[in-house]
């Protein structure tokens, strides 16, 4: 079961805000989905190697050759708040 604390914790990690009705709803829905996922625990997976890539590739490189960057105006064009050629954000509280 996914608790309210779990939802709060995960929401915080994911930088999402949840109000109290969402808290209930998400806790319920995540519990139901994970309940279905728990089917996996029927399997004995001790000797199975995990798959993270289905494609059997390795060592895909690019050469160390600079390519033109985008124009600064273009880089900034989509920025919600831009100042002095940079992206502006509210103050960063000390981490």
């Amino acid at each position: 079961m996914v608790s309210h604390d779990d939802v709060n914790y995960v929401a915080k990690l994911a930088r999402l805000k949840v109000d109290s009705t969402e808290l209930d709803r998400f806790a319920g829905q995540l519990s139901s989905i994970l309940g279905h996922v728990d089917k996996i625990s029927e399997l004995d997976l001790a000797d199975v190697t995990p798959t993270s890539h289905v494609i059997k590739l390795s060592n895909v490189f690019r050469e160390d050759a600079p390519r033109p960057s985008v124009e600064r105006d273009e880089a900034l064009a989509n920025g919600p708040d831009v100042e002095r050629g940079a992206f502006k954000v509210p103050p960063i509280l000390e981490a």
């Binding site: 690019r62 050759a65 600079p66 390519r67 033109p68 960057s69 985008v70 600064r72 880089a75 900034l76 002095r84 050629g85 940079a86 992206f87």
Partner: peptide
């Protein structure tokens, strides 16, 4: 492929 350099005008190597 953006160049590695120090300094320069902000956001010119992106």
């Amino acid at each position: 492929g953006c160049r590695v350099e120090f300094g320069g005008e902000p956001n010119t190597r992106t």
